[in-house]
């Protein structure tokens, strides 16, 4: 009886969605209800962040499912140098070649780790792929065409920082720790070979939809927070820190973290702030944002233990900040 009731509720939900789908225009609720503009702004920006991420999350989920089903652990092991430190440099190169943004990279990296990729190598790919990326290079080039130092600094420093992150993570954990949440722990898949092709395809779709829900809830929370900051934080608040050599980069890193922009678009936002912030602060914004932001922190929490995620954030933050300060001291 109870199950019957529950099904009824879900059918009612389906009906309501369909009703809204058909009659949204006729209802014209935004005209009838007197909702404050700021709330609607919030909703619009929230949806835009979420919608923008959907195709890339789906792409990441599918690539991850395909790796899961079709790529064997041995293949992965074969292509990674066995020397742990020697593997860092090729990992950055791999991150740079694949045009994968920060939403898509999380499920892919998690899958590579399940397939036996070493923790520090996986983290190098996680932080480098979204920033060292051909599309990001082009958009940065367009946005900062009159100030090419920003373009070189963004790519050069990101490369350096990704390697440093690999070193520090290796020094901290030496691969002795499994940062994945229990339910995503090591798996054995030898029997995959026995499954028919049709079964494998079915598996891909089942995995993809499960992962969409695993990641989706974190993505939604992240988008809501980021949109709140976007709608209610007046940019003028930032201005007073603009040229301060120590506060400037720190404020811009925090700003990048909470805005959670796509790495493809953040260059244009950075450029719009370039008059009020020093060059090194802008570089801090452009390097830190793709590596760490609120949206991808929450995506990582979907798969990784919370303690590991916060350690990783601390490691990246305390590498980016001094590197930016040194860059600033050398350049200006």
């Amino acid at each position: 009886m109870k199950g019957f009731l529950r099904e009824g509720v879900i059918y009612a939900l389906l009906f309501l969605i369909f009703f809204a789908f058909l009659f949204a225009d006729t209802l014209a609720l935004d005209d009838r209800l007197n909702i404050p503009n700021r709330v609607l702004d919030f909703n619009t920006i929230f949806l835009s962040i979420f919608l923008e991420a959907i195709p890339f999350v789906l792409l990441g989920v599918f690539v991850s499912s395909i790796i899961q089903v079709f790529v064997s652990d041995q293949t992965i092991q074969k292509y990674i140098p066995s020397n742990p430190l020697g593997a860092i440099f090729p990992a950055v190169i791999a991150g740079a070649i694949f045009p994968i943004c920060e939403c898509a990279i999380v499920p892919i990296v998690r899958r590579l780790m399940q397939k036996g990729m070493k923790l520090h190598v996986a983290m190098v790919i996680l932080v480098s792929a979204p920033v060292l990326n051909p599309i990001v290079l082009l958009s940065t080039f367009y946005a900062f065409s009159s100030d090419l130092i920003v373009v070189y600094a963004r790519m050069g420093l990101a490369f350096l920082i990704a390697m440093l992150v690999g070193l520090v993570i290796y020094a901290l954990y030496r691969n002795k720790m499994n940062p994945l949440r229990e339910q995503f722990g090591a798996i054995t898949h030898e029997h995959q070979a026995n499954r028919s092709f049709a079964q494998k395809i079915k598996d891909i779709f089942y995995h993809a939809s499960d992962e969409f829900f695993t990641m989706g809830k974190f993505l939604l929370i992240g988008a809501a927070f980021a949109s709140f900051i976007q709608t209610f934080l007046a940019r003028e608040v930032l201005v007073q820190f603009g040229m301060d050599p120590f506060l400037g980069p720190a404020v811009m890193m925090a700003f990048a973290y909470f805005l959670s922009l796509c790495s493809e678009a953040d260059a244009f936002v950075g450029a719009s702030l370039s008059q009020i912030f020093s060059t090194s602060s802008i570089v801090a914004f452009l390097v830190y944002g793709p590596m760490m932001d609120l949206k991808n922190t929450l995506l990582m929490l979907a798969y990784f233990k919370a303690r590991f995620v916060f350690t990783l954030i601390a490691v990246v933050t305390f590498i980016v900040y001094p590197v930016i300060l040194i860059f600033q001291a050398l350049m200006f």
Binding site: N37, D41, L51, T231, R235, S272
Partner: peptide
């Protein structure tokens, strides 16, 4: 979390950012 955006998306997709957001972002 998943259901709310479906409804706010279907019902309020017509909203256009205006002066309130412009003031937050600031004129360059």
């Amino acid at each position: 979390l998943f259901i709310i955006p479906i409804f706010t998306g279907l019902l309020f997709s017509g909203h256009v950012l205006g002066s309130s957001q412009a003031q937050t972002m600031g004129f360059k």
